[in-house]
Design a protein around this nucleic acid. Structure first.
Lengths: 189, 189, 189, 189
DNA sequence: CATGAATGAGCATTCATTCAT
DNA sequence: GATGAATGAATGCTCATTCAT
């Protein structure tokens, strides 16, 4: 889905992994360089600064997530079914890409992510906003603020994934169903 | 409730404020020293390292939160009433202490918080665990994993407080009630 | 007057302009490449190194200056008239080519200009040496060291041009005459 | 004459020497640190940045020069005598402090010296301006622009000192007298 | 010959920590 | 105990130069 240079991808992957491992601020560019096998100079050829790299990676990852979330969605299905599908897609992506979860979580408050980047990232969630709006209009979801619903949906997935990844709680099929249902019951009419 | 030296408190307060303002990694010890009026030497007398300071502040803050959460709780009240009280206490504390929320969120994945510290912090939530256990035993809460419930309870408060503080959504009384109810509906039978 | 490749000239011009604008050490080769439209590879084909480029540009510019200085000189004229002509030619060239002045001044002490280059550049001033020698022999100039006279002549032109270019002092015709005369009175018998 | 910390002086002296030897842009802070025996951290404790260090050194040196220039000047002396004294003081200081000459010359066009610094440095030459003004009023100096006179006076000293230091011309007593006289004849009525 | 992506040594600067006073 | 000047390893970034195409 991307026409990015091969090297950009290597840098992205390496950075993602290193930040998940060592944290946003314990990941020097020199380490990214060494581990990716790409010289610092080359990295700075593709990215203006470390900040730029992180911000672009953030956008890349956010877009990737959204692309996964709506996979296999059918227009024919019941709203609830689609809700479960979205939740499940999102959850599966996160637990299969724990570095993404770690990275995104670390970015969630970090000032290194610029306001402009956050704005851009919000555009990716347009389909989700649309999905929620439709749910309210249909009367399937309770009529409350869209951002609150979005935050709860997102939050429930992320929290569950974190519990799973941190091994505080093994989320098997049954448990996952319980988690999805918990969030659904909170939001649905 | 603590017998910590006056200076330790000043350092804690200053650090909390600075980390909320500038971030966990843009808060040099020299700045903490300057802004608190306590020399770096003195700070290093009380805290072995910056890491130690952050970890102890984390514990201090987590304990403080838990103390607030159970304030004014009555054994006579209905379970749901107490759930609402806890949620409300927690929420009000966070929105009145946004630096605490910011600090805790920044710490939530940061590797600077050691496993041992996280373990210790979990002890403070014992009363909450007990409260949830009781809810399940009574059949008021759905019978699922306690950590999942805990995470959802905590998550719903934090998410709502973040929406409020970031001004993405002004949480008035009605909206707050909606938020509490959303979480309650998800977790209750 | 030169059979240098077209490209070499473009590189020279670009470098001259950039060094005048940004300084000898804030002019990366990559910028010369970008602004001249000639790839770094090609530049390194013509010049062994940045140092070589600067040194050759220095020689080129020094020769250019000397060519201008003796323009329109007549063997018939009075010595003083020729002195005034030389001074004026030199001065006019500098104020019409401020990038040259800036470049030459920056090079005047910079270690990037090699001793060998300075030696070569001195050969260009042979006609000036000759002119001064003749002046001494004729008894028109005071009998002192030729290099001192040369330095004073050069110095008075350069200083005056710098005052003009930096706009500390607008050198109109009258002022220019005063400047020339000042230097002449110092050196003449 | 200064109440600067001992360390500041050591840094100044080291920087002056290194810049004279290696040039303004081949003098890394690490080398200043190593050669001065003062850690980079300590240098950055005294100076905000390399730029600040250079600018403050520039002011320090300019003030020092001016202090030397007026040494032993008597109000009773003839104007010409004082002119010779000033010229001589300035010249002797420069040839005894060749690193100062090299440094000041390198700074003369370098953009690292900020406009504000140049403005401040101009205040030090007030006594010289006054001296020249008096000369014009008395009719001893030719009535031309003060900045032109100042530039020629300064220029003649600097040029002569450079010839001497570079060993292009050994300036003995007689030669020095000739040089002073040359400049005086140019400027005087 | 020409290109320009890639290299990596080198630089300015920061900041956790120490220790002489 | 308290101070804060001093340390120096570590980091983000630059840029002269090379070399595969």
């Amino acid at each position: 889905m991307n026409v990015l240079s091969e090297k950009v991808h290597v840098v992205f992957d390496t950075t993602l992994r290193l930040i998940a491992e060592h944290g946003l601020h314990n990941t020097p560019m020199s380490l990214v360089s060494k581990q990716s096998g790409i010289s610092t100079g080359a990295i700075y050829h593709y990215f203006e600064s470390k900040e730029t790299l992180i911000n672009e990676l953030y956008l890349y990852v956010k877009e990737e997530i959204m692309n996964k979330v709506f996979e296999d969605m059918s227009a024919d299905s019941q709203y609830k079914e689609n809700y479960f599908l979205i939740w499940n897609n999102y959850f599966e992506y996160l637990i299969n890409n724990p570095t993404v979860l770690s990275f995104v979580e670390q970015c969630s408050i970090a000032p290194i992510i610029k306001e402009e980047t956050r704005k851009k990232a919000e555009q990716f969630i347009a389909p989700l906003i649309q999905f929620i709006t439709k749910g309210i209009q249909k009367g399937v979801l309770r009529d409350t603020d869209i951002h609150l619903i979005l935050a709860y949906l997102n939050g429930s997935v992320v929290i569950t994934a974190k519990l799973h990844i941190s091994k505080q709680l093994i989320i098997n099929k049954k448990m996952k169903h319980m988690a999805i249902e918990t969030s659904w019951r909170g939001l649905a009419n």
